[in-house]
Write a protein that binds this DNA or RNA. Sequence first.
RNA 1: GUGCUAGUAGCUCAGCUGGAUAGAGCAACGGAUUUCUAAUCCGUAGGUCGGGGGUUCGAAUCCCUUCUGGCACACCA
Length: 560
Amino acid sequence: MGIIINLETNIKENWRKGIILGQEKSLLTSTFVPEFTLEVPKDKKNGNYAINVAMLLSKVEKKNPRELAVILVDLYKSVDTSDNIEKIEIAGPGFINMYLSDKYLSEIIKEALNEKNTYGHNDMLSAEKINLEFVSANPTGLLHMGNARGAAIGDTLANILKALGADVTKEFYINDAGNQIENFGKSLDVRFREALGETGIAFPENGYHGSDIMETVKGYIEKNGDSLLHVAEEVRLKELIKYSLSEKLDHIKTYLGKFGLEYDVWYRESTIHNSGAIQETMKTLEEKDLLYENEGAVWLRTTDLGEEKDEVMIRNNGHPTYFAADIAYHKNKYDRGFNKLINIWGADHHGHVARMKKAMEAIGYSAEGLEVILMQLVRLYKNGEVLRMSKRTGTYVTLEELLEEVGKDAARYFFVMRNPDSHLDFDMDLAKSESSDNPVFYIQYAYARISSILRQLDKDVKEYLDDEDLVLSLDIEKDLALKIGEFEKVLIDAGVRREPYRVASYALELATLFHQFYSICRVLNEEENIKKNRLKIIIATKYTLENVLGILGVSAPERM
RNA sequence: GUGCUAGUAGCUCAGCUGGAUAGAGCAACGGAUUUCUAAUCCGUAGGUCGGGGGUUCGAAUCCCUUCUGGCACACCA
């Protein structure tokens, strides 16, 4: 645990001790310690921390909060014998505001300088073995913006969870079985025959209209000729599907790689179908009397589990549904030893969440361990206009095009900077712009500025990095140090709540404070002592920025 | 129709498990460069937190109701 977390834990503990002491001495009439909060006030005039305990106890103690606060503060002071707190004030309706001593700011900087690229990291989630499944795009087309958003959120979340000590496996579920694949095969077949001169073939109703599969088919013909024309349709479909899936998957891997994303596991849906896992799951459900037959299909009594309607598990053609396969797949993840299964899905799958949880419970596995992050759509703006996207008609911007247009850094940052709950307006012109409007450049520029100062340093940096306490005299220096100290809390918050956007916001806040510092404070050409102090601050900032950008998957350029 | 989700400044969004005068960024307007990168900084202005009711010391936050948008409600995934 880092210094700030420790400090806050101690402060809360001391308030608790103080209250108990007061109760023992009969200065207080209450018999319990309420769940009070220690918060960082929005306005720094109200101190570093505000405690609301006086307001919470005022009713029981039959005293007005401010009067009570006086007693509580005395009790606190008798318990906390450290020199961490410079002063305590009572304010507003009864808040107790605490002001940290500067010594603490110095400790924060030292911690960052010592821990370098593990600064902010933590072992809070070291007991977790997490399977994080995201993107899992159908390998029947190219990656679109929704996939890209999922990729950025998932990879960033994985980085955050790892920084908190969790054992994280990033997994891509390949939908290489089922109805969609059959349709895909039929579409390929039509394009294949068309490419070889046949005309007037009816295109399948739910087929894939994207122009990319024509390319795929042409590629196949170039390499392998037209011999498939003369074999049974079934064989031809199988071969075309195999070829295309492999090509599409390679493509997906390549571009996710360029996006900075490496998966640990690529798991094939066909494995679930071929391994008997579905039958096993069905057997379990059968034993619990949760299955029945109707009109040739096998149904799961999800209504018995609290859902609105029953669900088909095995269709009347004998094929299991996506739902049945998914239950088996998630069971399989648990069986591989994960205690948390986090999925990132498009919001259009939200109906699937509740019944998956119920199904997990029904087969005797944890529903709570299954967490789903739902992601709203991405709306793409270019030249001030919305670009409509549709996979069916084949008009969509691909990850490939996005990377070419705005680059990895901007794309990753933009996708992560908003809460997944809200629609994301992705402004391509802004993402491309090299100006202060663009948060990515703004943050990177802070890093480049620090690097520039360090390049021009006359002596080896190490000569300045001694163990002496820092003397921070200006507000901006203190604010910057405090912001650096917040990093660990931000990571914990982002990790525990599964909200990567907090890290993106933090990066921007840290960069803002650095730019303010930069415009007020000189580092080089200052008197030796000031120079030393400020070097420590900017180097601590540099490590923090490196760590933040690393987690976001955004590069940290030395020069811009 | 039922369920989920969102509605906060002109725009894009924060606002934690209820706390102090509701915050950023962009856009607008006005300023700053002899000095480590102006891709920067400082200042001004901008609000009926969709509407209404309730809970309490205190509500953008919790509850009820209503309006508006998005999504889901397949033997698709």
